[in-house]
Design a binder for these strands. Structure first.
Length: 274
DNA sequence: ACTCGCCTGTCG
DNA sequence: CGACAGGCGAGT
């Protein structure tokens, strides 16, 4: 589900209720996610600790505490919400942190592609995935990172944008949307695109992420994404191509096309994007 | 560098 | 019933 703007939206809405507060009680179900939840480890390392910071790296959230770091990834269907203890729990609630102010942080993930593990700080960089993340797409250096990766890759440019070891945080929605704004076909081989046009793409990546962040993320029809308070994001009204197969391009009126590329849909305007 | 598998849920 | 879904990693 969530890409950088959604994860950052969750971070911002969660932080005031986590940072500076103590975890009073951990309730964890032993269950297989992308990495399994170990209830004993969670309780040993996280019960009673004070949260010092809530950080985002790519699509990961890190809750830093004294001697331990909770690492979360929301996969396709993960959510983190703040609720009062008496509120009924959603199905697929796998982890609950009761905080010293009385509210609960709940980790919910129906499809179980997510991650919710608690590590020792020294284990962070060795974590597969987290340790191999590329540049933050909103950082100053991202321009050059993208240009270099694109110049070396024979793959379609959409694959480069989804590669988390190049830029960390783009997913299928924003990769498609950035390419639409840059006027580049998602199918074009990366290294066949001029450095100038990659520069345009880098600017489009930044722009679409900043706009989506301002809108509080993208909530699709299914209502899957909400922030920690349960609010939907409203960037969906500004999507140019994603999920709009057959609908008219907002620039030229040509029908938006959908194709499957390495197992995942690409959406693009065949006239505006080359 | 692509294919498949991991899961559950929803939509046509 | 099949197709598909904001992700990712193992295997090839």
């Amino acid at each position: 589900m969530p890409e950088l703007p959604e994860v950052e939206t969750i971070r911002l809405s969660l932080a005031p209720h986590l940072v500076g507060h103590r975890v009073v009680e951990v309730e964890a179900r032993r269950i297989r996610l992308r990495e399994g939840i170990e209830p004993e480890t969670w309780r040993e390392r996280f019960e009673g600790v004070r949260i010092l910071a809530l950080e985002r790296r790519g699509k990961y959230l890190l809750a830093h505490a004294e001697g331990a770091v909770a690492l979360f990834h929301l996969g396709m269907s993960g959510r983190m919400v703040l609720r009062r203890p008496e509120e009924p729990r959603d199905p697929h609630t796998h982890l609950v942190l009761r905080m010293d102010h009385g509210l609960e942080v709940r980790f919910i993930d129906p499809r179980r592609f997510g991650v919710a593990v608690v590590l020792r700080p020294e284990a962070l960089e060795g974590h597969p995935g987290l340790g191999r993340l590329g540049a933050e797409p909103l950082s100053d250096g991202m321009h050059d990172v993208l240009r270099q990766a694109a110049s070396r890759s024979r793959a379609p440019i959409r694959s480069v944008l989804l590669d988390q070891t190049v830029l960390a945080g783009l997913g299928n929605i924003y990769a498609n949307e950035a390419l639409a704004r840059a006027g580049i076909s998602p199918l074009r081989r990366a290294r066949a695109i001029s450095a100038r046009r990659i520069g345009v793409l880098a600017g489009a990546v930044r722009q679409v992420l900043e706009e989506a962040l301002e809108a509080g993320g993208t909530t699709l029809r299914d209502g899957g994404f909400v922030n920690a308070s349960g609010d939907a994001g409203y960037f969906s009204v500004r999507l140019l191509v994603y999920g709009r197969e057959g609908e008219p391009c907002l620039a030229c009126g040509a029908p938006i096309r959908r194709r499957v590329l390495t197992g995942r849909s690409v959406f693009y305007c065949p006239k505006c994007q080359r």
